[in-house]
Each structure stands twice: as C-alpha cells, then as structure tokens.
Nucleic acid binder design. Structure first.
Length: 192
DNA sequence: GATTGACGCCGAG
DNA sequence: CTCGGCGTCAATC
C-alpha cells in the first residue's frame, strides 16, 4: 500500500521560470525533481508562475530546473527535442499530493498522446480507438486537463474533419505550435 | 441521477 | 458550409 503524503513540507514544489523571445515559461517540480505541471507561455512572469501556483499554493522559486524550462521553451518554438518522459510525474493525485493527474483514464490519455510523433497529428477519435472506447468527447475533456502541455503534445490532437479543435490556452496557441512544427494550416484546417 | 465537455456523425437548410 | 440534434463516456455536482 502506498503511503499517502499530507499537505505541508511534502507538498511544497519548486517553480522554475525562463524568459525566451519575450514570453515567460514556467514549470513546477516535485521534491524528487519530477515535473508536476507546465504553464503555457505568458507575456509576464507573474502570470506564468501563478499558472502553476494556483494548483500548488505551497511553492518556492528556484533556478534548480531552469535548464528543463529552457528546453520546454525551445520545444514550444518548434525544436524537435526528444523529451524524457521519466521526468514527468505520472502518479495519480490520490497517492501523492504533488501529483497532478487525477484518474487512470487521464493518465492513459496522457500516455497515448505522448506517442504522437513530432510534426504529425492524430484525431480525438484516433486516441479514443487506441484506448478502446467510443468516448471521443471524454478523451477531449481529459486532454483539456493535460497538466504538461508542450511536452505532452496535446496540440497534435485535432478533430476528425481536419479542423484544429479546441485548446485551453486558446486556439491561436495551438495553431502556433503546429505551425512551428512545420504543419500548414489554412482557415482553421490542416492542409494535406 | 443530471449536467458538462478541447468530439463525431448525419441530415436539413 | 454552417447548424442542430443525438450518440457516447468520464468527471463533477
């Protein structure tokens, strides 16, 4: 049986930030050094930090993991980096206070979209089929909660009709990231 | 149970 | 092409 961690010292995380091309990136790290959450870029550092801290109120700022945040920033701008998924906290929240994933279903979805290669896309339906379910919509909802955007490429999941589909940080951000990976988009559609 | 989604499909304008 | 309506399923209330 897994020992439950309680709020307090153990749930304190460290947040690192990085400024790149006038955008501010941030990520939260557990005591073990694993990523617990990633923020989409903001235009000021406070917004970037609070994007993380609103889910993890107990935190301290630290440059300890700045290198990783730099990497994430590069990925946002289209660099094809093979990010080590072992650096991501995949445990379920009920087991560790510093985890971010809530259910097994969410984790399965996260793991599935992590397989989508750089510069390619899959549909919500594709993901659902890989998971043996017809809950296309449930898949979309789960992806919408992805705590690790950019690194877990939820921006590579689009609708079955070829249109871009939704994105929590705004569709423009999704379009930006796909464009940075070399995909061409015309009037909200991937052009083949 | 009832409602709510980053969806999919089909049929009517 | 754009809507609406219904199917579907996990999470949340």
């Amino acid at each position: 049986m897994v020992k439950k961690m309680y709020k307090g010292k153990n749930s304190r995380i460290k947040i690192s930030t990085h400024n790149y091309k006038n955008l501010y990136f941030a990520a939260g790290f557990s005591k073990k050094g694993k990523i617990v959450r990633i923020a989409l870029p903001k235009d000021n550092i406070n917004d970037a930090v609070s994007e993380i801290s609103k889910h993890h109120p107990e935190f301290s700022l630290s440059d300890e993991n700045k290198g990783l945040v730099q990497e994430i920033a590069c990925m946002y701008f289209g660099e094809n980096i093979n990010f080590d998924l072992k650096l991501i906290e995949m445990d379920i929240e009920s087991e560790y206070e510093t985890s971010t994933i809530k259910t097994k279903f969410e984790r399965d979805v996260i793991l599935e979209i992590s397989k989508i290669p750089y510069g390619t896309v899959q549909t919500y339906k594709d993901i659902a089929m890989s998971l043996n379910t017809n809950g296309y919509r449930a898949v979309g909802t789960a992806i919408g909660k992805n705590p690790f955007p950019i690194v877990v490429p939820c921006h590579r999941v689009i609708r079955s009709d070829g249109s871009i589909g939704g994105f929590r940080g705004g569709t423009e951000v999704k379009v930006d990231m796909l464009s940075n990976e070399g995909l061409k988009i015309k009037s909200n559609r991937i052009v083949d």
